[in-house]
Design a binder for these strands. Structure first.
Lengths: 209, 209
DNA sequence: GTCTATACACTGATAGAC
DNA sequence: GTCTATCAGTGTATAGAC
């Protein structure tokens, strides 16, 4: 039955997400994914043929959670730079809290095998047409000329903004361990307060006063 | 012969570093490490007994490359906050260029198994006595009172500084792919220019003008 | 200390019954 | 579509000769 099939396919994908994102491609076991999905190991191969193909699907979905968001926000051309930063950080940190394991997963797997990105690009052309940086560059240059912000290019600014949001999540174990005595609760508070802190930090970094 | 032994032990460790840092614990193969070291697979077990023990050694060494450096710099109490930031970013980015794969390796393995950190702490007490943040906090509070910098706590500042240095290295494949059309040369130039950019960015973020 | 040969467990994948 | 049983390949680890 098709109804049943869709359901099983979804259960497998959800289980695969869970396991792959925590253990990575090489650390994940098909058996564990099957257990997590509550089905038999053979069914995984029935629906996705190979481990690599299943992984690819999971990776693409993870990727598409975080990348288009960047595009959406940067492209909202009616906003000032300050408003964009405010809006981006606010939304991106919320998104990160919802999916805290995805950034580390994507970054790690891409380091192990950068080739995956090329495949994702080929399947989703929209990712590739990211020349939105030129437009953002123009806006930054414009506001700099008007004396609103100090000069900075879009790639550096975006790297800084995204890095300040993602880094404390990706490097959580080490920062929490070294700076917070491995106290999970204190680190959660730290992250909570960072939203406002990061916005202030960035605005002040580029603002002309 | 002891001379020969030391040499082989070192060769194994160097090979293990190379393979583990690129493939991770679960992705690495003892056979590949043996090949890389130019010796037999059985010798690996003769010197390090198990894959896990060999990995642990490699992890500890990788860890000790980047963490004590933080301590050294933050503890140089005779410097102003601005000088510390200048000095830190300059030195840390140089260090990152020398060992670009270590941060991603450490971060990833700690996400897979945060327990490793506890083991490292137990073996190296110096890592744990990182209460240097209290001292740095005092200095930040002092300079803020004097009207030199805007108020910020040590943990947020250190997270920002380290994040701005490490993130473009760790997330290189994705940033290079999306923002630089996968052009390696252009990304190298980008990284080269970031040293000055990052320092300016941070100084302006906390400076009172 | 270093090698060859091999034990033993596990993993991804398939065959075939229902 | 879903299951059980099983295969072929690979991985860590050890035994034992030199």
């Amino acid at each position: 039955m098709i109804e049943q099939a869709k359901d099983t396919e979804t259960k497998i994908l959800d289980a695969a997400k869970e396991v792959f994102q925590h253990k990575g491609l090489t650390g994940a076991r098909m058996q564990e994914i099957a257990d997590q999905a509550g089905i038999n190991k053979a069914l995984l191969h029935y629906y996705y043929r190979t481990k690599d193909k299943l992984f690819e699907k999971v990776f693409e979905l993870a990727f598409s959670v975080f990348i288009p968001k960047i595009r959406d926000i940067v492209l909202s051309t009616d906003k000032s730079v300050f408003d964009k930063i405010n809006f981006f950080v606010d939304n991106y940190i919320d998104l990160l809290n919802k999916h805290p394991y995805i950034p580390g997963f994507v970054i790690n797997e891409l380091n192990r095998n950068p080739q995956i990105l090329v495949q994702v690009f080929e399947k989703n052309v929209q990712f590739k047409e990211m020349n939105l940086f030129e437009k953002f560059d123009a806006q930054l240059k414009d506001e700099a000329k008007k004396g609103i912000i100090r000069p900075i290019d879009a790639r550096n600014l975006m790297t800084n903004v995204i890095g300040l949001c993602i880094f404390p999540i990706v490097a959580r174990p080490i920062i929490q361990g070294i700076m917070f005595d491995n106290n999970k609760k204190n680190y959660d508070i730290f992250l909570e307060q960072r939203k406002k802190m990061v916005i202030d930090f960035i605005i002040n970094a580029i603002k002309v006063k």
